[in-house]
Structures are given as structure tokens and as C-alpha cells.
């Protein structure tokens, strides 16, 4: 990797002051599981790395009446072992467990999961986030697109969001705090992720001089939530399709539903037709089946990823089945 300066501040304010106005100036280092690989491949070539590991205020999981506060530096393993998470937020625990490498869970952080770059192999091979070939057109539609998007894939972005926690956090209605020199902004996780329209844009709204400091998840007592991930291998692999659900119940009836698909679009993908199909229904096998079908309505698979439509539908079905069985 390219040589860089290294700084280890102890406060968020210090860290912000060490960042620059371009991604080439400085990058943030948390677990490093994604960033260092990107740097070894010269996809990221920052002049400076600002380590977040010395910043105490970015640590810890805290539960209060207002919900759950997850510091950006909380590792996947910490999240997975947290009793409040396991009890009240099984959809987050399942997403953490899905990262099946203990080493990865020990190093990787929740903030880093949200900020990791897409796994699109054109991007990873240096063709840019929009995978442009020599004539300026995307290489994805006519190339090997077996792991690419089946929704929101009419260009210019075809990659899928790689985040494990994006879908469950969107389903739970979580927000993130972003700190920059001009202050703090709180954004719904759903607004944090974006499909880039230009080569210079990114897959989220984070600015080069901004730090994702914490994740705030509303209370989930009484909210049945679950995540189901479909992957080729049970270890060391990204999922092919995932579904996270969060259901507010009135007795056996679904009062409101959030159903969010992962690894099917450049952002965590709200399956609104499925949410609508389920709302007001009794949560039974027939309703689940109907919602699973509705979740993939309007999918536009590419030449090699039609199989993901079925996987996404099954993921929704299984996540809803888990949620139906959950005690709250």
C-alpha cells in the first residue's frame, strides 16, 4: 500500500480536525478489515490515516428508555454478546452472527460495517464504483453480474450495498450521528445510504471530513424483528440476499411492518409492496407467503443474477417466520 501519515486522536473533535476535504487527504481507520485491503489494492490511497481506536466516546453499547445507543467502535463480537441486543434486537444479533469469522467479528466494528465499500469486483479491480469501461459505459450489464443488484439497477450504479447492519437498522428505524467541523447531524440510516449518480459520489452521504460516531436504535420491546441471510458458504462469505423485518403487532395482527432486503440493490432496499401486503393481516403462513412474493415484485435482474430474485423472496419468508415465532 501507499505510505501514509498516521494519527491516533483521543477525541472526536481532534479526529475531525485531522481530516481533509477530499478522500485522498485522509481516511478513518477503525477495525481496518475493509480499509487495509482497499489500500493494499490501491483502491484507496489516502495521505493520512486517522485511527479512531483511541477515542473512548466511540465505544460501548448503552440501553435506555430512548432505545439502544451503539458506539461506532463497538465490534461485531461485542454486539453479538450483548444481552440487550440478543433479547430485544435479534435481527441485529443475527446480522452479527452472519459474519461467521470470529477474527472478523473481533476486529470489525458496527460503524465500519455501515461505511464499508461495496464488494463489486469491478470496483475492487479499479474500475471505479460505477464500473466504467474504456467507452464510458458500465461493464456490469454485459459482464459478469451474478452478484450485482436486482433492484434499483438501471444505472449508473449496479453494485449491492455490502453492509450487514444496514437492512436491520433501516427496518428498526435507527438513526446515525455524523460529526463534521460544522457540527453534528442525525440521519435515519435509510437516508445514510444512497445510490451514487456520478463517479465522484459514494454509496453513502458521509463527507470526507465527517465521522459516523454512533447508532441510535429505537426501543424494540414489542417489535418482532428478525434477519435471515442466504449465503453460498456458511463461513467467510458475504450473503447473496438477506431480509430484515420489524413488525409492530396488535394481538396477532400486524399493525405496521418494515421489510428491508440486503445485497439486492445499491442501498438497503425497502420492500414496500411486502410491507403493505402484510399490514393489517393476521401473521400466518398465508400472509407470510404473500408478503414474500410481494417483496420481489418489480425486480429487474441482470443477465446472470435472476437466481437472486428467488433467494430474496425466500429470505423474506424465513425472516417473517422467525419473527412470527419470536416471543416479545
Amino acid at each position: 500500500m501507499q505510505a501514509f501519515e498516521y494519527a491516533r486522536p483521543s477525541t472526536v473533535q481532534e479526529a475531525v480536525s485531522l481530516l481533509g476535504n477530499s478522500w485522498e487527504d485522509a481516511n478513518l481507520l477503525a477495525g481496518g478489515t475493509d480499509l487495509l485491503s482497499l489500500m493494499k489494492d490501491y483502491i484507496h490511497t489516502p495521505k493520512r490515516l486517522v485511527s479512531l481506536k483511541g477515542i473512548k466516546e466511540l465505544e460501548g453499547i448503552r440501553k435506555s428508555a430512548g432505545g439502544l445507543r451503539i458506539g461506532a467502535l463497538v465490534t461485531l463480537e461485542e454486539l453479538l454478546r450483548n444481552p440487550d441486543v440478543r433479547k430485544e434486537y435479534p435481527s441485529l444479533a443475527a446480522a452479527a452472527r452472519g459474519v461467521a469469522s470470529p477474527q472478523m467479528r473481533n476486529m470489525g466494528t458496527v460503524g465500519g460495517d455501515l461505511c464499508q465499500r461495496p464488494r463489486c469486483w469491478y470496483f475492487r479491480l479499479g474500475f471505479g464504483l460505477l464500473a466504467k469501461g474504456p467507452n464510458g459505459e458500465s461493464l456490469v450489464p454485459s459482464g459478469d453480474n451474478r452478484y450485482h443488484a436486482i433492484f434499483n439497477n438501471r444505472g449508473p450504479a449496479y453494485f449491492v450495498s455490502a453492509s450487514s447492519f444496514g437492512p436491520p437498522l433501516v427496518a428498526l428505524g435507527a438513526t446515525v450521528n455524523l460529526v463534521s467541523p460544522s457540527g453534528t447531524r442525525e440521519l435515519p440510516v435509510e437516508k445514510f445510504f444512497v445510490a451514487p449518480a456520478t463517479e465522484n459520489a459514494r454509496e453513502n452521504v458521509l463527507a470526507p471530513n465527517e465521522i459516523l460516531t454512533e447508532i441510535l436504535v429505537p426501543p424494540a420491546a414489542g417489535v418482532r424483528n428478525a434477519t435471515y441471510e442466504v449465503r453460498q458458504k456458511m463461513a467467510l462469505d458475504y450473503p447473496l440476499a438477506t431480509a430484515s423485518v420489524a413488525l409492530r403487532m396488535r394481538g396477532n395482527t400486524v399493525a405496521s411492518a418494515r421489510i428491508v432486503l440486503g445485497h439486492v440493490a445499491p442501498v438497503p432496499w425497502r420492500a414496500q409492496a411486502a410491507e403493505k401486503a402484510l399490514t393489517g393481516k393476521t401473521l400466518n403462513a398465508a400472509a407470510i407467503e404473500e408478503a414474500a412474493k410481494a417483496a420481489v415484485q418489480g425486480a429487474t435482474p441482470l443477465s446472470m443474477n435472476g437466481y437472486k430474485v428467488q433467494l430474496a423472496s425466500v429470505a423474506v419468508k424465513r425472516a417473517l417466520e422467525e419473527a412470527a415465532q419470536a416471543r416479545t
Binding site: 501519515e5 498516521y6 494519527a7 483521543s10 495521505k47
Partner: peptide, 17 residues
């Protein structure tokens, strides 16, 4: 020179530290 430019937080590298 880098260490002098940022007095609040020590910055090391890109050379050996």
C-alpha cells in the same frame, strides 16, 4: 515537520516511527 504542523495530536509517518 508533520509533528510540528499538528501540535494537538501527534502525526507520524509516512516515514518510519
Amino acid at each position: 515537520t508533520e509533528a510540528a504542523a499538528a501540535p494537538a495530536v501527534q502525526v507520524v509517518g509516512p516515514g518510519p516511527a
